[in-house]
Design a protein around this nucleic acid. Structure first.
Lengths: 243, 243
DNA sequence: CTCCAGTGTTATATGTCGTAACGAAAGTTA
DNA sequence: TAACTTTCGTTACGACATATAACACTGGAG
């Protein structure tokens, strides 16, 4: 039972191969759609034989999971960069920038974004809690949540009274607040989540082509949503910079 | 070149087999997830050999398309029944009933609903315009649109001025209005679509488990959305009947 | 040098989609 | 009745997929 500690050099080589596999899978996704991402195709593309890939990912599903995790991380990074492009004194501007960065990334990477919420693998189960993909998804959500926390702590704005919420929502938000140790009161959490649902929902439908029958360009609709969001959270809306 | 006119009896037998294939595919979808729906599995389940199915559906994709078309039709029928359960004098109540029927059907048929907007087949292309699946999807949307038309024609309610909309939305709504010969003015169309996006977007996210991290029961959130919808369209909100 | 974990290979089992080639049944027509 | 055509089913097959098994090579650790 040697349990030999692999040298750091060997480790890095392995990481590089893992990365190349994911990158290749991603290219296949973009070029040939979801059906084009097969273990064998990835192997061929890299010049190795099929079973070699299984040294790195235990199954097709595991590979897909890892690739999706990459997507979440890239999207999160992009959004954080957009946030940090604005001055901290203008949290509203930073939030708008973050939202627009999310949509821009999604538009620029429709295949990737499509997989993130419509991958055939996750539909049921997959609540392993410890899966890296779930962790990455939570980091993604956190980009928004943290900014709302920031907004709230700088200057609490009026939200509907807790007592006016339906009892079921009261319970769920109290639970969620406790579960995530959020400093936000439950009623503010619900307002935040409502805004987030509207934005993210719109984006999902856009990317999944559920609105093509009526709209050809949803950018102004997205901006309208941002205006509503600003109105609800006591922010001053600013149109996108013309760059 | 006989071009023999098959007897009606033969035609009916064929229709029955077509139906049984789709029904079997649907059962496999529910029991074993999207990956469980294979041509061979359907054939096995029906006690016939694989290639026999190809006498009825030219490809796996064609079968999936047909099954999804069934789903749209069933959902449309369910919603129409809910609409007609209320008296025509109460168009608001009928609209609420329709919306709730949509959500109920989706909750009761998550696999089916998941396929309808996240089927791997449609992501790109598939704008054949004449595909039965697209037609069924349009019928589904029409259930809402017609009721809004009805509401509007009974009593036009205030909507934002056309001139206040972003020019891009002005153009898109004018196009859409002309394309569908809608009696609604473009600004009313946009308001209708905005409401529809919020409702349908919420439902998509719920079924795709994008909101599990915060909510365990989205029914009250859906109801909140319905309240907003009523407020925007000059309707009196009524809570769901306790049945 | 020896050992062995890590990485690659080929061969194989099983299953998929889809086509080809063939046979049986049933209806149409002479 | 006999011949023909269409429809529907079958088996056989090819290409490809996931995944495992068995084997060979390599290079760092001791």
């Amino acid at each position: 039972m040697g349990q030999q500690a692999s040298s750091p050099w060997v480790k890095r080589r392995r990481q590089a191969t893992l990365q190349e596999i994911r990158t290749t899978a991603r290219r296949l996704l973009r070029q040939h759609g979801p059906g084009g991402v097969t273990v064998n195709a990835v192997a061929r593309e890299m010049g190795m034989s099929g079973p070699a890939v299984y040294r790195y990912y235990a199954s097709h599903d595991a590979l897909v999971e890892a690739v999706i995790t990459d997507f979440y991380e890239e999207l999160t990074t992009t959004m954080l960069a957009a946030r940090d492009a604005g001055p901290p004194e203008h949290p509203g501007r930073r939030l708008l920038s973050t939202c627009r960065a999310m949509r821009t990334w999604a538009i620029d990477h429709p295949s990737e974004f499509g997989w993130m919420f419509a991958s055939p693998a996750l539909s049921a189960a997959k609540q392993d809690e410890e899966s890296p993909r779930l962790r990455a998804g939570q980091q993604f959500e956190k980009v928004f949540l943290d900014q709302f926390v920031d907004l709230w702590e700088r200057a609490p704005y009026p939200v509907p009274d807790f007592e006016d919420l339906p009892p079921s929502i009261q319970r769920q938000m109290t639970d969620y607040s406790a579960r995530t140790n959020s400093p936000l009161p439950p009623e503010a959490l619900h307002l935040f989540l409502s805004s987030w649902i509207k934005l993210y929902g719109l984006l999902c439908m856009e990317i999944l082509h559920q609105l093509d029958f009526a709209y050809s360009d949803l950018e102004p609709v997205f901006e309208e949503n941002l205006q509503e969001l600003c109105a609800m959270h006591d922010l001053t809306y600013e149109p996108p910079s013309a760059e």
